[in-house]
Design a binder for these strands. Structure first.
Length: 231
DNA sequence: AACGGTAGCAACCGCCAAGTT
DNA sequence: CAACTTGGCGGTTGCTACCGT
């Protein structure tokens, strides 16, 4: 086997002779106590600190999807279903973003739930509607092209990873969406007008602009799109 | 009871972007 | 600046429990 790609090489090296498959209770305990003791250390250090013969990815996944005490277990409620439907319509298969709007739910949970339940509901609904899918093209915000020197620099604590600007905008999209998805009866533009200074999350856009007209045009597009999504 | 099909979910894989050396 | 490392994501796989025959 010839591996030329350097990243693949290192990953291969890391994967040599590490345990795979289902986690045992003992491994869970080791990982849990390691995280509780050391907090958010580098995942690459976790297997060693915890005394686990697992790769960093496996540890991370186990914690994020299963061991994290903040995870909400049990069946999805109706309002969660509804929110997933709407967000999926808007964002497509961007499970981490969708899960971010569902407290205690993980991306893996949402993805599995969608594949097992909701996707079938969508198909059934489509059939009922005469086969005309109501899916809009998922929102995929364009990467920002703001020159680096113009970007606002925020103080970074320690060696915190710099946030991908695309992700930042997307997360802001979804947090902002609360106002819409939350069933606010106000016109969306009105809503924005009333809170522009307080809640508008696009610092970069606000920086652009001071041109509120442009921003309001964007809001108007959102309104059009959302009116198709929110029934 | 045995078998096959299916659903649900945990875990892995491959890839990518960003950070570090 | 290139090579390497790391964290994160979406897609996919495989195991297991359940159900109907």
């Amino acid at each position: 086997m010839i591996v030329t790609d350097s990243a693949s090489k290192s990953q291969l090296r890391a994967s040599v002779s590490v345990r795979k498959g289902a986690w045992t209770r003992v491994e869970d305990e080791l990982l849990r106590s390691c995280i509780e003791k050391h907090g958010s250390v580098r995942w690459s250090k976790v297997p060693q600190l915890a005394g686990l013969n697992r790769c960093r990815k496996s540890c991370r996944l186990r914690w994020i999807n299963y061991l994290n005490p903040q995870i909400k277990r049990g069946t999805f409620e109706e309002d969660e279903d509804d929110l997933i439907f709407r967000l999926h319509k808007l964002l497509g298969n961007r499970w981490s973003l969708i899960a971010g709007r569902l407290p205690g739910r993980t991306a893996n949970d949402v993805k599995n739930y969608w594949n097992a339940h909701l996707s079938k509901k969508v198909v059934a609904r489509d059939k009922k509607d005469g086969g005309s899918s109501r899916f809009a093209t998922p929102m995929r915000p364009e990467p920002q092209t703001i020159p680096a020197r113009e970007k606002k620099t925020s103080p970074v604590e320690g060696k915190q990873r710099k946030i991908n600007p695309v992700t930042t905008v997307e997360e802001d999209h979804t947090s902002w969406l609360d106002h819409f998805i939350g069933g606010n009866e106000k016109s969306h533009t009105e809503l924005f007008e009333g809170h522009a200074d307080a809640v508008f999350p696009y610092d970069d856009l606000a920086e652009f602009g001071k041109d509120k007209g442009l921003i309001l045009e964007g809001i108007s597009r959102w309104e059009n799109m959302l009116s198709d999504i929110i029934i």
